[in-house]
Design a protein around this nucleic acid. Structure first.
Lengths: 203, 203
DNA sequence: ATTGCAGTATACCGACCGGTATAGTGACAA
DNA sequence: TTGTCACTATACCGGTCGGTATACTGCAAT
């Protein structure tokens, strides 16, 4: 657990970026939190933007590792894991340090399309969704990709809902919805991708 | 459509705040976009923070009015409107100016709890959810509040997914999931709010 | 004609921003 | 002992930030 200076700077920056926001965090604050100097920071990182990308890339990896560990610790079968996802999210949202999804937040702080931040965020989202798709496939879902996308919408929705209004039970409701979607996806269900606003479809 | 100066400033600020981000938009840029001066801006708004809140409050009202209009134009029955919600969201996400949900973005730019921005965002979210709950109730849903929360999770999830990765079909998938949830909520369905990660619950 | 008021024009403030230049420290290796 | 190297210390840069002070313009009401 002994961090070298570069790691120490990145860790200090990560905590500040997530808790206070990226734009709101100056390099002086990072330097002070890491107990070092600007000169050292700029030795290891080309610019603040570079440091921001390093933060997001590390967060991507760390979060996914942590998340899979948590899910594995809660459930054994693929189907149970699919539901455990929402329990893990629920527990994460309950900690006081929770400030929403770092990638959504980063994309919101740098809205201009083409910003490298968006690419890292999109990659995180892809990774997460394909993890869910794997589980869905192992469950025997008729369309794992479709189910995975739908479940990931519930997860992201729960996260941002909780960010805007704490303790509103988003994770529990997301889980209830997930149960319905999963059960539906395991039994027969024709692909409805052609349907329009029309209310009564094939039955 | 003739705007007085105060409205002109607010409109210019709103467009910049949404398209470029709030922190990234300086008051000089707002003043230039509104073709006026700082002195006038600070005559009508106490501070930039005050202007930000005015932006969010107006956006709350404008967006809801626009949204209900769009839904009403697409569908007549409550059930059809519930589905039309996702069509409207889908069309909104397709316009090139789309930059996600202004309230999620604002909450992300000002992460500290207790910031007034969060209160306005929470109010917007409540308004939206109670609109959905009304429709759900008119449909004869067994638990309109529950269904409304679940559908709002899908909507918010679709918005942030689209923000992080454009043109990934979030709205269509959200609609497919919504169809399943709505159908399930209209038929019998015991309240599952006690269930845990356990996969096989009461049947 | 005078007053008042909405709005303009512009210069300015201190604070902070990201980033750099320069000099100095201490430990370790040859 | 000398050189190297990671790191510190600190002063500084130009630019931008939110916000203000002061003076001016033009119109409308009395």
């Amino acid at each position: 657990m002994t961090l070298n200076l570069q790691e120490k700077i990145l860790q200090a920056a990560s905590e500040l970026f997530y808790s206070q926001g990226i734009r709101a965090t100056g390099v002086d604050a990072i330097v002070k939190a890491a107990n070092t100097t600007k000169m050292s920071l700029y030795k290891y990182f080309l610019s603040k933007d570079d440091l921001v990308l390093a933060f997001l890339r590390k967060r991507d990896e760390d979060f996914r590792v942590w998340f899979v560990e948590q899910v594995d610790a809660k459930a054994d079968t693929p189907k149970a894991k699919l539901l455990a996802v929402f329990d893990v999210i629920g527990e994460w949202m309950a900690v006081p340090e929770f400030r929403g999804c770092a990638f959504i937040n980063a994309a919101a702080e740098f809205p201009l399309e083409g910003n490298p931040v968006h690419q890292v965020s999109a990659e995180f989202y892809d990774h997460f969704r394909s993890y869910i798709a794997d589980l869905a496939g192992q469950c025997g879902s008729k369309s794992p990709e479709s189910l995975a996308l739908q479940l990931s919408l519930l997860v992201e929705g729960a996260i941002v809902s909780e960010q805007m209004k704490r303790h509103s039970g988003s994770a529990e409701q997301a889980k209830q919805a997930a149960i319905v979607l999963i059960e539906g996806s395991l039994s027969y269900i024709p692909d409805l991708s052609l349907s329009t606003t029309n209310t009564q479809e094939q039955q």
